[in-house]
Design a protein around this nucleic acid. Structure first.
Lengths: 120, 120
DNA sequence: AGTATATATGAAGAATTTTACATATGAATA
DNA sequence: TATTCATATGTAAAATTCTTCATATATACT
């Protein structure tokens, strides 16, 4: 491996890191996770999601934009409404990994980070 | 499905959401991603990571703790040192998904969120 | 035991992210 | 085109997360 390709790898890695950061940041938010959960059931409009979650419309809208930017969801206009639906390919394979990881390391049901809690 | 099992599903979902939140939050940080990247190569001590990344020892230590709590890494003492190594099973399958997702939706290399950037 | 080296921890300020409110834009329909 | 319904956006304040500094703890060695 010459210097040039080492450099390329570094750049690639940096790029991957930026991607990963945006990818994971987008998913590290309770509102957005709850939204994804809603959309697992069926495509929904902004107001439907907001009502279901008991949150403000504008707040949901802000969060949907982030999910959209990361292509975790897509949107389609339906008359006055705009309907959001899930990118199942990514989300489902992702959640499979989380579930497996949790099953293996968080035996007490969903409560991950038991070690962390114990330490305090 | 009776009321009881509906409730169980809700609780399960909440639990999964908490798990997901912790899982993804842990990964949505540049320092921790860079650390993971280092550990892909080989197990390393705190100081080795800190030096490699040009960061403070205590800062790396704080961040390693979070990665440890989520079981993305594990630690073993080696004399005075403490050596951290990667949970490859989870991390590698996870990064495969991110890479695929990025390949599909971020055609310009690693720079995801092109839509987001364009909007401003 | 005392010292040196390696790592962990607590806490406060800095930085980032999230939310709420006000308001703007877009689409359908009278 | 005026009105209504649905969604988006700008921005400041609130909430959360991160980093830094000081210091504590742990291990090995003399």
């Amino acid at each position: 491996m010459n210097n040039n390709s080492v450099e390329s790898v570094v750049i690639l890695k940096k790029a991957l890191n930026q991607t990963c950061y945006k990818f994971f940041s987008c998913l590290s938010n309770p509102t957005r996770l709850a939204t994804i959960e809603m959309l697992i059931e069926k495509p929904m409009s902004v107001n439907e999601i907001a009502t279901a979650l008991g949150e403000e419309q504008s707040m949901i809208s802000h969060n949907l934009k982030l999910l959209l930017d990361c292509n975790f969801i897509e949107s389609n206009r339906d008359g006055k409404k705009r309907v959001y639906s899930l990118n199942r390919e990514t989300i489902e394979s992702l959640f499979k990994i989380v579930t497996n990881h949790a099953k293996k390391y968080c035996p007490k049901g969903g409560r991950c980070g038991i070690k962390g809690d114990q330490r305090k």
